[in-house]
Simulated assay, not measured.
Amino acid sequence: MPAAATPDRLVRAVEMMGLGPADRVLEIGCGRGAAVALVCERLAGGTITAIDRSHTATAAAKERNTAAVAAGTAVLHTTALEDAAFEDGAFDQVFAVNVNLFWVRSPARELRLISRWLAPGGRLHLFWQAPGEAKAAEIAVKVPPAVTAEGFHVETVTASPLVHVQARRS
């Protein structure tokens, strides 16, 4: 069965992260694995670990990325972010696309986990394809203070065409 077309928001998000070939990457909320495939195309020696709370989603992601999983380049887990267990400093980059918990409520607990999992100097990328300019502006205003409050240094905030908050672990 052919893979579904890759949404443009995922293509743009992966391009904006500036991945290095040896990066160790964590995707939060991987869905059916389209971004996993895009990240794997950019890795040579690096890895992507992807999590989603849906077993159906991770099963589809594993099917879509069979070769990368077999090669050990991609590792997928069915787990909620707050239940995940990774070693401190395990990732160079962490990203999430359209994961609303980072702006609809306080993400303090999740950001503390991410901060532990990021290597020193590691980067966090939070992306949303907001339905309209007003919602994009709202997200772009709400997220940076929450990220800063948990010890991250916000480096960039863009609101169009894709909301992107990039922060570095302090």
Rank of each mutant, 00 (worst) to 15 (best):
R9K: 12
A13I: 11
M17R: 02
G18F: 03
L19F: 03
A22W: 01
A22E: 12
A22N: 05
A22Y: 02
R24T: 09
R24V: 10
L26H: 06
L26G: 10
G31N: 09
R32K: 05
A34M: 05
A35N: 07
A35R: 02
V36D: 03
L38D: 09
V39Q: 03
E41A: 10
E41K: 07
L43F: 08
A44D: 13
T49Q: 10
I51P: 08
D52T: 07
S54M: 11
T56Y: 07
T56P: 00
T56D: 14
T58H: 02
T58N: 02
A59H: 08
A60V: 00
A61N: 01
E63H: 05
E63R: 10
N65M: 00
A67C: 00
A70S: 04
A70P: 00
A74C: 11
V75S: 15
L76I: 14
T78Y: 06
T79C: 13
T79L: 12
E82L: 08
A84E: 06
G89T: 09
Q93L: 12
V94N: 05
A96W: 02
V97A: 12
N98E: 03
V99G: 01
L101Q: 09
F102C: 07
W103R: 12
R105A: 15
P107K: 01
A108W: 01
A108S: 15
A108N: 04
A119V: 14
G122E: 12
